[in-house]
Design a protein around this nucleic acid. Structure first.
Lengths: 219, 219
DNA sequence: TATTCAATTTAAAACAACCTTAAAAGCAAC
DNA sequence: GTTGCTTTTAAGGTTGTTTTAAATTGAATA
C-alpha cells in the first residue's frame, strides 16, 4: 500500500512514517498544502492522509479541489481535537474518514486498512497444533465440522498440548459441574474425536493416560 | 444505520423517529437515563443521540460513564437553546457533536450522516460472493428484492464469507437490543432467504452450524 | 494366564435445535 | 378505510446431537 501524507509537523510525521513502514505501508510525505495538492492529483496512491492546518493551502482546500477534479482516492482528514466543524466540513466535502489529533498510529493504520479494504483481519480465533488447525468461529478442525461437545473437549486438549486433561475437568468444563454426569460421556466423545482425527490423516492423536485423563500428542 | 435515542419528551421523540425512519435510520428509543445507559453500553449502535435533561441520569452522566468504559460510539448531545455550559461540558467529555433544541430533524440527519459516514469506498455499494451480487442501495440480490430484515441478515452473512455469524449477533444487529426478541425470528428469515437463494439457482447456500449460527458457503 | 477394572465402541432412544408454513398483526401507501 | 407488503406469532414436523446402555477390548496385577 502506498499513501500520501501531508503534514507540517515534522517530528510527528517522522514518528508516524516510521510506524507505517513497519506495517509495509509506503509513505510519501510532504509538508505544505501546495505540494500536497500536486501529488494528490496524481493517481499514485491507495489513500491520502491530510492534515487540515497546513501552510499555503489547507487540507480542506486540497480535498475540495481533488474531488472537483474527480479524484476519488480515499482521504482521511486529521485535525486538532474536538474541532467538530472541521470534521463535518471534511466529511461533507468527500473525506472518507476523520481522525482527531492526537491519534494513535495504530488507529490510523486500522483506518487505512479499512479504507483500502484489506480483509479486516478479524481476530481469527484459530488454534494450531502441529498439522492441526482448529477454527473456533466455524467449529471446524482442518475443515471437518465438530459438534458442540466435540469442540468443547478438543479446545481443552489443544490448548494444553503436551499435558493431560482429566475427565473431571472435561466434564466440568463441557457439561457443567452438576455432577450427575457420567465419565462415559467423555469416553464416547473421545472416541468420536479419534475417528475424526483419523479421517483427517493427522499425525496428531489423543493419548489416554489410565486413571488420569487424555492428552494431545504428535507421533 | 442504527442509533439509540434517549429523550424524555415523548411527542418530540415520536416526531423525530418518524422522520428518521424515512431516512432508513433504525431507532431504539428510551425515555430515561438509566435505560439509556444500559443500552448505550452495548455495542449495537452506529451513533447515540442524548438529551441532557433526563429523568434518573443526565445525558452528561451517561456520556461520562460510556467513555470511562471505553465505548467509542459517536454521541450527539441535545440541549435547550443557549446552554453554553452544557455544550462545553459535553464536548469535553467526549461528545462528537452538539445540537441545540429546538432543532430541525434534517439537521440531525445531516450530522448523523456526517458522524457515521463509514468509509464508503466510493460508490461501490455492492457486495459480491461467488455468483451473488448484493446491491445495498436498492437491496437486491441478483435482481430480486429483499425486505429490510432479509437484507440486514444477508449483509452480515456476505460480509464475513469465511466465518459463522451467531443468532445473537443477528438479533442484536437487525432487531436491536430490546431483548424480548426470539431466535425464531432469525430462523424464519433464514428460511425466506434460502427460498430466494434457491429461486436464483445460486450455488451459494446458507449453512447452519448447530448451536452456533449460520454462514454463507459455496457448494 | 486368569482376573479385574478401565477404557472403547456401537447403536438405539431421547432430546433439543432448527425448519417450515400459514395465519395474524402491523404498517405504509393509496 | 382499503390494499398490499412486511413482520411477528405459533405450531407441527424434521434433523442432528446427546444420552444411555450394553458388549468388547485392552492393560495391569497377581
Amino acid at each position: 500500500m502506498r499513501i500520501l501524507y501531508v503534514e507540517d509537523e515534522k517530528y510527528l510525521a517522522e514518528a508516524v512514517i516510521h510506524l507505517l513502514k513497519k506495517e509495509k505501508i509506503a509513505v510519501d510525505w510532504v509538508a505544505d498544502g501546495e505540494e500536497g495538492l500536486d501529488l494528490a492529483l496524481k493517481p499514485n496512491y491507495d489513500a491520502i492522509v491530510l492534515d487540515i492546518m497546513l501552510p499555503k493551502l489547507s487540507g480542506l482546500e486540497i480535498l475540495k479541489i481533488m474531488r472537483e477534479r474527480g479524484i476519488k482516492t480515499p482521504v482521511i482528514m486529521l485535525s486538532a481535537l474536538n474541532e467538530v466543524e472541521d470534521k463535518i466540513n471534511g466529511l461533507e466535502m468527500g473525506a472518507d474518514d476523520y481522525l482527531a489529533k492526537p491519534f494513535k498510529t495504530a488507529e490510523l493504520i486500522a483506518r487505512l486498512n479499512a479504507l483500502v479494504r484489506r480483509p479486516p483481519l478479524m481476530d481469527a480465533k484459530v488454534l494450531n497444533f502441529e498439522d492441526l488447525k482448529f477454527d473456533l468461529t466455524n467449529r471446524t478442525l482442518n475443515g471437518v465440522e465438530l459438534t458442540d461437545k466435540e469442540a468443547g473437549i478438543f479446545e481443552m486438549l489443544i490448548k494444553t498440548p503436551g499435558s493431560a486433561v482429566t475427565k473431571e475437568q472435561i466434564l466440568a468444563h463441557v457439561w457443567g459441574n452438576e455432577s450427575e454426569f457420567e465419565e462415559n460421556y467423555v469416553e464416547v466423545y473421545i472416541s468420536y474425536l479419534r475417528k475424526k482425527l483419523k479421517s483427517l490423516k493427522s499425525r496428531a492423536e489423543i493419548k489416554t493416560i489410565r486413571n488420569l485423563g487424555y492428552k494431545l500428542v504428535y507421533v
